[in-house]
Amino acid sequence: MEAGGGQPRIIVGVDGSAASVQALRTARALAGPLDAAVEAWACWDVPAGFGIYLAVGIEGFEVAAKQALRQALADAFGSPVPPEVRGRLLRGSAAHLLIGGSREAALLIVGRHGHAGFVPGSVSSACVSHAHCPVLVVPVRADASDGGR
């Protein structure tokens, strides 16, 4: 599917985990043959039970997500980030936002295990079950500790 009748896009869920860095690399490898743009989505929200932080401010959660996105892009591609890859910072549940975004995507890519949830693979499982486009779940490669490049 093409977003808005233009270039197809691949959405990648990014949380800074090794799996999401590998998902970014996979998306870039597929973007060329699909003539697609890559959008790296970092989703953040105030976790349940953190109501006290609302009085102090929520900026820390947003800043942490922004840093995780920047670091994941740097880990995946170095500098500069390829021009076909854009980062987006969104507030809300990662699973909910990624599933919503899948309505306008050609492909949704997520890592098998990330940092976002308390249940390993919960975001990827939700995306596989409810996305509106094909979903690719990327595991962490055994050689990811050496940069995986």
Rank of each mutant, 00 (worst) to 15 (best):
Q22W: 00
A29Y: 06
G100R: 15
L54H: 14
A65C: 13
S122R: 05
H130M: 07
L97T: 15
Q7F: 00
A31V: 08
P82Y: 08
C133W: 03
I52T: 13
R86L: 06
V12D: 05
V21N: 11
A40N: 03
A55Y: 13
L89P: 11
P80L: 07
C43M: 13
M1A: 14
D75G: 01
I109F: 03
A27K: 01
S102V: 02
G92D: 04
L30F: 11
A42C: 15
F50N: 08
L54E: 15
A116F: 01
P8Q: 03
L30K: 14
R103D: 10
F61A: 07
I11V: 15
R141S: 15
H132C: 02
A74M: 10
R28F: 10
R9W: 02
A18I: 01
V140K: 13
S124P: 09
G147C: 09
E62Y: 04
V140I: 06
I58N: 12
Q67Y: 00
V14H: 01
G148W: 00
G6D: 10
E59N: 12
W44V: 06
V119M: 09
A36D: 03
E62V: 00
G6F: 05
V63L: 10
G148C: 05
A65D: 04
R149K: 12
A29C: 03
E2M: 07
V38G: 05
R28H: 15
